[in-house]
Design a protein around this nucleic acid. Structure first.
Lengths: 143, 143
DNA sequence: GTGCTTGCAAACGTTTTGCAGACTC
DNA sequence: GAGTCTGCAAAACGTTTGCAAGCAC
Protein backbone atom coordinates (compact mmCIF):
# COMPACT_ATOMS: atom_id res chain seq x y z
CA UNK A 1 0.00 0.00 0.00
CA UNK A 2 2.73 2.47 0.97
CA UNK A 3 4.77 1.08 -1.90
CA UNK A 4 1.95 1.94 -4.28
CA UNK A 5 1.72 5.49 -2.97
CA UNK A 6 5.47 5.86 -3.40
CA UNK A 7 5.17 4.51 -6.93
CA UNK A 8 2.50 7.08 -7.66
CA UNK A 9 4.65 9.92 -6.41
CA UNK A 10 7.68 8.59 -8.28
CA UNK A 11 5.79 8.99 -11.55
CA UNK A 12 4.89 12.61 -10.84
CA UNK A 13 1.45 11.67 -9.57
CA UNK A 14 -0.25 13.01 -6.48
CA UNK A 15 -1.56 11.13 -3.49
CA UNK A 16 -5.14 12.26 -3.09
CA UNK A 17 -7.79 11.03 -0.74
CA UNK A 18 -9.74 9.43 -3.57
CA UNK A 19 -6.71 7.39 -4.53
CA UNK A 20 -5.95 6.42 -0.97
CA UNK A 21 -9.50 5.28 -0.33
CA UNK A 22 -9.73 3.42 -3.62
CA UNK A 23 -6.57 1.53 -2.78
CA UNK A 24 -7.87 0.69 0.68
CA UNK A 25 -11.02 -0.72 -0.88
CA UNK A 26 -9.01 -2.71 -3.39
CA UNK A 27 -6.76 -4.15 -0.71
CA UNK A 28 -9.77 -5.12 1.40
CA UNK A 29 -11.74 -6.61 -1.48
CA UNK A 30 -11.43 -10.09 -2.88
CA UNK A 31 -11.24 -8.96 -6.49
CA UNK A 32 -14.08 -9.16 -9.03
CA UNK A 33 -15.37 -5.69 -8.27
CA UNK A 34 -16.79 -3.57 -11.04
CA UNK A 35 -16.05 0.14 -11.25
CA UNK A 36 -19.55 0.80 -10.02
CA UNK A 37 -19.13 -1.48 -7.01
CA UNK A 38 -15.80 0.11 -6.22
CA UNK A 39 -17.41 3.54 -6.46
CA UNK A 40 -20.11 2.46 -4.04
CA UNK A 41 -17.55 1.21 -1.53
CA UNK A 42 -15.45 4.34 -1.90
CA UNK A 43 -18.50 6.57 -1.57
CA UNK A 44 -19.40 4.88 1.70
CA UNK A 45 -16.34 6.66 3.09
CA UNK A 46 -16.35 9.80 0.92
CA UNK A 47 -19.68 10.38 -0.81
CA UNK A 48 -18.44 13.06 -3.20
CA UNK A 49 -15.99 10.90 -5.10
CA UNK A 50 -17.35 10.56 -8.58
CA UNK A 51 -17.55 7.43 -10.70
CA UNK A 52 -15.43 9.07 -13.38
CA UNK A 53 -12.71 9.65 -10.80
CA UNK A 54 -12.79 5.94 -10.01
CA UNK A 55 -12.32 5.14 -13.69
CA UNK A 56 -9.47 7.62 -14.00
CA UNK A 57 -7.74 6.30 -10.91
CA UNK A 58 -8.16 2.72 -12.00
CA UNK A 59 -6.59 3.66 -15.33
CA UNK A 60 -3.66 5.24 -13.57
CA UNK A 61 -3.21 2.22 -11.29
CA UNK A 62 -3.27 -0.02 -14.30
CA UNK A 63 -0.61 2.06 -15.99
CA UNK A 64 1.52 1.53 -12.90
CA UNK A 65 0.87 -2.21 -13.04
CA UNK A 66 -0.80 -2.24 -9.61
CA UNK A 67 -4.28 -3.10 -10.82
CA UNK A 68 -5.66 -4.99 -13.76
CA UNK A 69 -9.12 -5.57 -15.09
CA UNK A 70 -10.77 -8.65 -16.52
CA UNK A 71 -13.85 -9.13 -18.62
CA UNK A 72 -16.06 -11.70 -17.00
CA UNK A 73 -18.86 -12.59 -19.33
CA UNK A 74 -20.85 -9.81 -20.87
CA UNK A 75 -21.27 -7.24 -18.16
CA UNK A 76 -18.91 -4.57 -16.94
CA UNK A 77 -15.21 -5.19 -16.37
CA UNK A 78 -13.97 -6.14 -12.92
CA UNK A 79 -10.85 -4.82 -11.28
CA UNK A 80 -8.35 -6.43 -8.96
CA UNK A 81 -4.87 -6.02 -7.59
CA UNK A 82 -2.31 -7.41 -10.00
CA UNK A 83 -0.71 -9.29 -7.11
CA UNK A 84 -3.91 -11.30 -6.56
CA UNK A 85 -4.52 -11.96 -10.23
CA UNK A 86 -5.85 -15.28 -11.41
CA UNK A 87 -7.77 -16.64 -14.36
CA UNK A 88 -11.54 -16.81 -14.49
CA UNK A 89 -14.10 -19.27 -15.73
CA UNK A 90 -17.67 -18.09 -16.06
CA UNK A 91 -20.63 -20.44 -16.14
CA UNK A 92 -22.97 -19.56 -18.99
CA UNK A 93 -25.73 -21.42 -17.18
CA UNK A 94 -25.78 -19.79 -13.75
CA UNK A 95 -23.22 -17.01 -14.05
CA UNK A 96 -20.93 -18.43 -11.39
CA UNK A 97 -17.38 -17.09 -11.42
CA UNK A 98 -14.79 -19.79 -10.85
CA UNK A 99 -11.29 -18.65 -10.03
CA UNK A 100 -8.33 -20.62 -11.24
CA UNK A 101 -4.62 -20.33 -10.62
CA UNK A 102 -2.76 -19.14 -13.69
CA UNK A 103 -0.68 -22.31 -13.37
CA UNK A 104 -3.52 -24.30 -14.98
CA UNK A 105 -2.70 -22.48 -18.20
CA UNK A 106 0.96 -23.37 -18.35
CA UNK A 107 0.42 -26.29 -20.73
CA UNK A 108 -1.73 -24.22 -23.06
CA UNK A 109 0.74 -21.36 -22.83
CA UNK A 110 3.55 -23.67 -23.89
CA UNK A 111 1.79 -25.12 -26.92
CA UNK A 112 0.41 -21.78 -28.06
CA UNK A 113 3.90 -20.34 -27.78
CA UNK A 114 5.44 -23.10 -29.86
CA UNK A 115 2.61 -23.42 -32.41
CA UNK A 116 1.71 -19.77 -32.90
CA UNK A 117 4.51 -17.82 -31.24
CA UNK A 118 1.88 -16.21 -29.10
CA UNK A 119 2.46 -15.38 -25.42
CA UNK A 120 -0.85 -15.60 -23.59
CA UNK A 121 -2.12 -13.58 -20.66
CA UNK A 122 -4.98 -15.65 -19.28
CA UNK A 123 -6.02 -13.09 -16.69
CA UNK A 124 -7.60 -10.52 -18.92
CA UNK A 125 -10.55 -12.31 -20.44
CA UNK A 126 -12.58 -15.01 -18.79
CA UNK A 127 -13.21 -18.34 -20.43
CA UNK A 128 -16.86 -19.29 -20.69
CA UNK A 129 -18.35 -22.71 -20.26
CA UNK A 130 -20.46 -24.60 -17.76
CA UNK A 131 -19.83 -25.25 -14.09
CA UNK A 132 -20.14 -28.82 -12.86
CA UNK A 133 -23.75 -28.37 -11.70
CA UNK A 134 -24.92 -26.77 -14.96
CA UNK A 135 -22.96 -29.25 -17.08
CA UNK A 136 -24.81 -32.12 -15.39
CA UNK A 137 -28.07 -30.26 -15.80
CA UNK A 138 -27.67 -29.97 -19.56
CA UNK A 139 -26.48 -33.56 -19.79
CA UNK A 140 -29.78 -34.59 -18.19
CA UNK A 141 -31.80 -32.63 -20.72
CA UNK A 142 -29.86 -33.80 -23.78
CA UNK A 143 -28.03 -37.00 -22.84
CA UNK B 1 -27.99 -22.78 -45.89
CA UNK B 2 -31.26 -24.45 -46.81
CA UNK B 3 -30.98 -26.43 -43.60
CA UNK B 4 -30.80 -23.18 -41.68
CA UNK B 5 -33.88 -21.79 -43.40
CA UNK B 6 -35.73 -25.01 -42.60
CA UNK B 7 -34.59 -24.75 -38.99
CA UNK B 8 -35.94 -21.21 -38.87
CA UNK B 9 -39.32 -22.28 -40.19
CA UNK B 10 -39.42 -25.27 -37.87
CA UNK B 11 -39.22 -22.94 -34.89
CA UNK B 12 -42.15 -20.83 -36.09
CA UNK B 13 -39.86 -18.21 -37.63
CA UNK B 14 -40.25 -16.61 -41.03
CA UNK B 15 -37.81 -16.56 -43.90
CA UNK B 16 -37.41 -12.93 -44.83
CA UNK B 17 -35.08 -11.33 -47.29
CA UNK B 18 -33.03 -9.73 -44.52
CA UNK B 19 -32.42 -13.14 -43.01
CA UNK B 20 -31.60 -14.74 -46.31
CA UNK B 21 -29.10 -12.03 -47.21
CA UNK B 22 -27.53 -12.05 -43.76
CA UNK B 23 -26.99 -15.78 -44.02
CA UNK B 24 -25.48 -15.42 -47.48
CA UNK B 25 -23.05 -12.85 -46.13
CA UNK B 26 -22.17 -15.08 -43.19
CA UNK B 27 -21.56 -18.07 -45.43
CA UNK B 28 -19.34 -16.00 -47.70
CA UNK B 29 -17.39 -14.35 -44.89
CA UNK B 30 -14.42 -15.76 -43.06
CA UNK B 31 -15.75 -14.97 -39.60
CA UNK B 32 -14.63 -12.08 -37.38
CA UNK B 33 -17.27 -9.70 -38.69
CA UNK B 34 -18.83 -7.19 -36.37
CA UNK B 35 -22.52 -6.42 -36.52
CA UNK B 36 -21.66 -3.16 -38.22
CA UNK B 37 -19.55 -4.86 -40.87
CA UNK B 38 -22.26 -7.40 -41.48
CA UNK B 39 -24.79 -4.59 -41.83
CA UNK B 40 -22.58 -2.90 -44.38
CA UNK B 41 -22.27 -6.08 -46.43
CA UNK B 42 -26.00 -6.74 -46.20
CA UNK B 43 -26.84 -3.16 -47.14
CA UNK B 44 -24.70 -3.46 -50.26
CA UNK B 45 -27.44 -5.78 -51.49
CA UNK B 46 -30.46 -4.25 -49.74
CA UNK B 47 -29.80 -0.74 -48.46
CA UNK B 48 -32.90 -0.47 -46.28
CA UNK B 49 -32.01 -3.26 -43.90
CA UNK B 50 -31.41 -1.64 -40.56
CA UNK B 51 -28.60 -2.35 -38.12
CA UNK B 52 -31.11 -3.25 -35.44
CA UNK B 53 -32.54 -5.89 -37.73
CA UNK B 54 -29.07 -7.36 -38.10
CA UNK B 55 -28.77 -7.55 -34.33
CA UNK B 56 -32.18 -9.15 -34.01
CA UNK B 57 -31.45 -11.69 -36.71
CA UNK B 58 -28.07 -12.52 -35.25
CA UNK B 59 -29.76 -13.11 -31.91
CA UNK B 60 -32.25 -15.44 -33.52
CA UNK B 61 -29.52 -17.34 -35.36
CA UNK B 62 -27.62 -17.69 -32.12
CA UNK B 63 -30.71 -19.08 -30.43
CA UNK B 64 -30.84 -21.69 -33.18
CA UNK B 65 -27.17 -22.48 -32.67
CA UNK B 66 -26.24 -21.49 -36.22
CA UNK B 67 -24.17 -18.47 -35.29
CA UNK B 68 -22.09 -17.51 -32.32
CA UNK B 69 -20.29 -14.39 -31.32
CA UNK B 70 -16.93 -13.86 -29.69
CA UNK B 71 -15.45 -10.94 -27.86
CA UNK B 72 -12.11 -10.10 -29.35
CA UNK B 73 -10.39 -7.58 -27.16
CA UNK B 74 -12.28 -4.49 -26.18
CA UNK B 75 -14.17 -3.50 -29.30
CA UNK B 76 -17.46 -4.79 -30.65
CA UNK B 77 -18.33 -8.48 -30.73
CA UNK B 78 -17.70 -10.48 -33.89
CA UNK B 79 -20.03 -13.06 -35.35
CA UNK B 80 -19.36 -16.28 -37.18
CA UNK B 81 -21.02 -19.51 -38.21
CA UNK B 82 -20.91 -22.02 -35.39
CA UNK B 83 -19.61 -24.61 -37.83
CA UNK B 84 -16.49 -22.53 -38.52
CA UNK B 85 -15.88 -21.69 -34.89
CA UNK B 86 -12.40 -21.59 -33.45
CA UNK B 87 -10.61 -19.96 -30.56
CA UNK B 88 -9.02 -16.53 -30.75
CA UNK B 89 -5.88 -14.95 -29.45
CA UNK B 90 -5.62 -11.17 -29.58
CA UNK B 91 -2.35 -9.30 -29.44
CA UNK B 92 -2.49 -6.47 -26.94
CA UNK B 93 0.41 -4.83 -28.73
CA UNK B 94 -0.80 -4.61 -32.33
CA UNK B 95 -4.36 -5.92 -32.16
CA UNK B 96 -3.68 -8.88 -34.43
CA UNK B 97 -6.27 -11.65 -34.27
CA UNK B 98 -4.73 -15.11 -34.27
CA UNK B 99 -7.05 -18.02 -34.90
CA UNK B 100 -6.47 -21.30 -33.19
CA UNK B 101 -8.08 -24.68 -33.54
CA UNK B 102 -10.12 -25.61 -30.50
CA UNK B 103 -7.96 -28.72 -30.26
CA UNK B 104 -5.18 -26.63 -28.68
CA UNK B 105 -7.43 -26.33 -25.64
CA UNK B 106 -8.00 -30.02 -25.07
CA UNK B 107 -5.30 -30.30 -22.42
CA UNK B 108 -6.58 -27.28 -20.56
CA UNK B 109 -10.13 -28.55 -20.91
CA UNK B 110 -9.13 -31.84 -19.35
CA UNK B 111 -7.38 -30.37 -16.32
CA UNK B 112 -10.05 -27.74 -15.74
CA UNK B 113 -12.66 -30.47 -15.89
CA UNK B 114 -10.88 -32.64 -13.36
CA UNK B 115 -9.72 -29.84 -11.05
CA UNK B 116 -12.81 -27.61 -11.08
CA UNK B 117 -15.53 -29.68 -12.73
CA UNK B 118 -15.84 -26.93 -15.29
CA UNK B 119 -16.51 -27.61 -18.98
CA UNK B 120 -14.89 -24.86 -21.02
CA UNK B 121 -16.05 -23.28 -24.27
CA UNK B 122 -12.96 -21.51 -25.56
CA UNK B 123 -14.72 -19.92 -28.54
CA UNK B 124 -16.66 -17.23 -26.80
CA UNK B 125 -14.00 -14.97 -25.35
CA UNK B 126 -10.61 -14.34 -26.82
CA UNK B 127 -7.43 -14.81 -24.84
CA UNK B 128 -5.20 -11.79 -24.78
CA UNK B 129 -1.45 -11.71 -24.90
CA UNK B 130 1.29 -10.78 -27.33
CA UNK B 131 1.95 -12.05 -30.81
CA UNK B 132 5.45 -13.21 -31.62
CA UNK B 133 6.50 -9.86 -33.12
CA UNK B 134 5.21 -7.80 -30.20
CA UNK B 135 6.56 -10.24 -27.63
CA UNK B 136 10.04 -9.80 -29.08
CA UNK B 137 9.52 -6.06 -29.19
CA UNK B 138 8.80 -5.85 -25.48
CA UNK B 139 11.63 -8.23 -24.70
CA UNK B 140 13.94 -5.79 -26.46
CA UNK B 141 12.66 -2.87 -24.40
CA UNK B 142 12.76 -4.66 -21.07
CA UNK B 143 15.08 -7.67 -21.47
C1' DG C 1 2.41 28.92 -7.84
C1' DT C 2 2.56 24.99 -10.96
C1' DG C 3 0.23 21.61 -12.80
C1' DC C 4 -1.99 17.26 -11.57
C1' DT C 5 -6.82 15.87 -10.08
C1' DT C 6 -11.48 16.36 -9.44
C1' DG C 7 -16.74 16.95 -10.06
C1' DC C 8 -19.94 17.63 -13.29
C1' DA C 9 -22.29 17.16 -17.50
C1' DA C 10 -22.17 15.73 -21.78
C1' DA C 11 -20.47 12.59 -25.28
C1' DC C 12 -19.11 8.17 -26.87
C1' DG C 13 -19.70 3.41 -29.17
C1' DT C 14 -22.24 -0.73 -28.93
C1' DT C 15 -26.40 -2.91 -28.23
C1' DT C 16 -31.37 -3.11 -26.91
C1' DT C 17 -36.13 -1.75 -26.99
C1' DG C 18 -41.12 0.27 -27.96
C1' DC C 19 -43.90 1.16 -31.45
C1' DA C 20 -46.69 1.22 -35.74
C1' DG C 21 -46.65 -0.56 -40.18
C1' DA C 22 -45.20 -4.43 -43.46
C1' DC C 23 -44.57 -8.83 -44.39
C1' DT C 24 -44.63 -14.34 -44.35
C1' DC C 25 -47.24 -18.10 -44.01
C1' DG D 1 -55.99 -13.11 -41.09
C1' DA D 2 -52.76 -14.25 -37.38
C1' DG D 3 -48.69 -13.50 -35.85
C1' DT D 4 -43.87 -12.59 -36.94
C1' DC D 5 -40.60 -9.20 -38.58
C1' DT D 6 -39.10 -4.64 -39.84
C1' DG D 7 -37.61 0.46 -39.86
C1' DC D 8 -37.18 4.10 -37.10
C1' DA D 9 -36.15 6.73 -33.13
C1' DA D 10 -35.00 6.64 -28.68
C1' DA D 11 -33.09 4.52 -24.78
C1' DA D 12 -29.82 1.69 -22.31
C1' DC D 13 -25.28 0.49 -20.89
C1' DG D 14 -20.47 0.96 -19.54
C1' DT D 15 -17.00 4.06 -20.29
C1' DT D 16 -14.52 8.33 -21.78
C1' DT D 17 -13.81 13.26 -22.24
C1' DG D 18 -13.81 18.72 -21.94
C1' DC D 19 -13.95 22.04 -18.85
C1' DA D 20 -13.36 25.11 -14.88
C1' DA D 21 -12.50 24.85 -10.05
C1' DG D 22 -9.68 22.52 -6.34
C1' DC D 23 -5.90 20.47 -4.37
C1' DA D 24 -0.97 18.28 -3.56
C1' DC D 25 3.39 19.43 -3.86
Amino acid sequence: MDQVLALLRAGGGRVTSSRRILLEVLFDADGHLTAEELAEAVQARAPDIHLSTIYRNLDELQRLGVVLHSHLGHGPATYQLAANAHAHFICEGCGAVVEAPVRLFSGLARSVKSDLGFVIDPRHFAILGRCSACAQESRRHRP
